[in-house]
């Protein structure tokens, strides 16, 4: 397979950013009600279903616009996707290390993984009750706590970032996003175990 695994965003070339598309300020903090109503309004104006009987170029344009609106909404309505997208805009072409982690973080994650492996060997049945379920719950609580504090840190970093943040803030945000990925993977595994 010759796949380079580089996702393309429909917006990449058209110069319009998702925030502007929805008439929202370019910020991590987002007003959900405004986002939702802007999404509805845009969808009502450009969904291809309203152009089913229109000439082909008009229908194609509606489909393209509607696709962009859907993708923008998907990104902006998710905390992590929005953070990643905004960071990309703020970094403005500067490359950031997508593997950078705070000191000790990787070790901590590996220890948690090992603990999980010991408690729940790969082919073990789901832990819905008993002492193991208690363990899984405890670990889930731990991971959730870490995620909460990551989000808090992210809010602060973005709030202090301004229009053109310095390298240090950008790196801090990238590291924050990298950590979240690890924690989310752990959380996913715990959810599977608990089901």
């Amino acid at each position: 397979m010759d796949c380079m695994n580089k996702p393309l965003r429909p917006s990449a070339s058209d110069g319009e950013d998702y925030f502007r598309l929805f008439g929202l300020p370019r910020s991590y903090a987002i007003d959900r009600a405004s986002l939702d109503s802007a999404y509805e309004e845009l969808s009502l104006s450009c969904h291809p279903d309203f152009f089913a009987a229109a000439p082909a170029p008009e229908l194609a344009a509606a489909r393209a616009k509607s696709t962009l609106v859907n993708e923008a909404y998907r990104v902006l309505s998710s905390d992590s996707l929005r953070a990643e997208y905004l960071l990309g805009l703020l970094a403005a072409g500067r490359s950031l290390d997508t593997r950078a982690l705070p000191e000790g973080f990787l070790m901590e994650m590996l220890e948690l993984q090992e603990e999980l492996d010991e408690l729940f060997p790969p082919e073990s049945p789901p832990a819905t009750d008993g002492p193991q379920a208690g363990q899984a719950q405890r670990m889930r609580g731990l991971v959730k706590e870490r995620l909460e504090s990551l989000l808090e840190e992210r809010r602060k970093l973005f709030a202090g970032a301004g229009e053109s943040p310095d390298e240090q803030i950008l790196r801090g945000l990238q590291t924050n996003l990298n950590c979240e990925k690890y924690l989310n993977r752990l959380l996913e595994r715990l959810e599977i175990i608990e089901q």
Binding site: M1, C3, K6, N70
Partner: peptide, 28 residues
């Protein structure tokens, strides 16, 4: 798509609102 080792690489996630689009770069 199928990627190395028979793994499934998701381009458009389930429950994504339609119409939707995703792109992927390939080389030889």
């Amino acid at each position: 798509l199928e990627t190395l080792g028979g793994t499934f690489s998701k381009l458009i996630m389930g429950n994504t609102t339609l119409p939707a689009q995703a792109g992927e770069l390939f080389t030889t």
